[in-house]
Design a protein around this nucleic acid. Sequence first.
DNA 1: TAAAAATACTCCATAGGTATTTTAT
DNA 2: ATAAAATACCTATGGAGTATTTTTA
Lengths: 306, 306
Amino acid sequence: MIEPRRLRHFAVLAETLHFGRAAERLGMTQPPLSQSIQALEAELGAPLFQRTRRSVALTPFGESWLPHVRAALAAVEALPEAARRLRDGEAGRLALSFIGTAVYSALPRLVQAYAARFPDVEIALTEATSDVQISALLAGEGHAGLIVAPPSGGLPKALDYLPLLSEPLVAAVPEAWGDGDRPLAPEAAIKAPLILFPRPAAPAFHDLVTGWLRAHGGEAKVAQEATQMQTIVSLVSAGLGFALVPASLRNLARTGARYRDLRGAAPILETGLVWRRAETAPTLRGFLEVAREAAQPSGVKEKLKP
Amino acid sequence: MIEPRRLRHFAVLAETLHFGRAAERLGMTQPPLSQSIQALEAELGAPLFQRTRRSVALTPFGESWLPHVRAALAAVEALPEAARRLRDGEAGRLALSFIGTAVYSALPRLVQAYAARFPDVEIALTEATSDVQISALLAGEGHAGLIVAPPSGGLPKALDYLPLLSEPLVAAVPEAWGDGDRPLAPEAAIKAPLILFPRPAAPAFHDLVTGWLRAHGGEAKVAQEATQMQTIVSLVSAGLGFALVPASLRNLARTGARYRDLRGAAPILETGLVWRRAETAPTLRGFLEVAREAAQPSGVKEKLKP
DNA sequence: TAAAAATACTCCATAGGTATTTTAT
DNA sequence: ATAAAATACCTATGGAGTATTTTTA
């Protein structure tokens, strides 16, 4: 293998075309440079320079090899800086999973803030339910995930958790119901047909909704199931029933559907970030920094922007 | 600068994930490999591998740096082979100039034969008159040129010459002349309007044509000048006059034009190759080999294929 | 004669070797 | 107890230095 030191000797001499000055630029003296070039020429089996005692010129062979050498040198010389950026999380890849309910709130917020500070990191996004994300993380897949708040102490020891955003649920009701934007009374909600995620697709969210209804003495009358927030709102606007959705869904306007606060104590949906406590990926460290800034308590109930 | 030896250590260890086996594959023993990796990690400021006494694994940082290292190593390792190919004329660039009359004979022949044997050499073609080519070569530009045979001893000492192809001139006459394909008598040619290159554009060829007419006691009646063989034949087919053209032009069929041998001794157009005797470009050496094979005397009057 | 590359030699930094220790399973 | 990496120490190759010679414009 040709040592890059040799290659630099060649590249610099090819620029200066003067052994003395090239040696100076290389921080060495002339004789070892002469020897180095000679050794290189011997190894390649052809002269790279034509020496005429008073001048040095590239041979056509040397001329044609030079761009190859420059490219290889550039690649090698770029390695330390590339390593530094990867080490400091300024470049690389971040694999982030998220629950569907985060699409209009925590996810865009976080991703925008992170991409702004680490523009050269490739972000790989995957939608999944909270428990699927947790299993994946335990299996060593992905770097972090946005999940519904786990029951306290309900997370495996290997994972760490950061609450990011708490938002009340609001009701999405068909416009045909009338009553304008007045808060929806629990008693009215109990009697109405409900549109909801199937429980396996989002157990924590499902339990949050049915728990609230039960707390007001009713049982969920599930008229329709759907696995996408957008679909649920569409079904509401079609008049098939009402739904309880995160307040951030107000950003998803749909003719025929209307968002109304819940009267009394609304259920709170907490979205947070999980990751392997022991994970050493540098991109994750940078992401956690951004996430901790985004998780300021003051921001908990602030108006959300998509 | 990081030595590529180190990089190879890293790359191989990243594959085997076992210091002992990696050292073996690298033709060294385990301890210096350990030290080498440690030195690399110290230089980068972060661990590349996670050692757990019973197993070695890449850290996320190491994992993300690896492709960069592989690319740089590949570039460096490809250099000797690239040099060999450039040195042996198997790759690189060949700058070839040619006269217009070679377009249907010597040029395609040579270029095809050369490209077949040296498919990775980029051929740069430039059309120019013989004297322009000679000046360019003397100025160090280009590698070789196809020119009209120079008067014997008429070439500068610095240049070398190889006759490639001798072909008789034939007459291109308007179909309207009748007389079918019968040879054209000099006496008839003398009286007819002639279409010819302007002398500055092709002095040697011009003199060949006018010399032949003069040898038969006539002077050229130039009805029209044109600088492209194709244009000349077009003008012939338009009935503006006749032209004397290299026999290889028979390959350029044009309705309204007809090619007829010349009666008696036809002027012979010799096309040959010039190059700087001292030129060391490896691609030229390969090209000259091919040219010498293509210049077999047996081929002088053989039927030409475009 | 002078400028510049080549040659001759000397030295030392470091890559790699051998021997041994440490550590986790 | 054993496999595997780390540590300690030694050796020698070769890259770079100094001094000098060669060469040609």
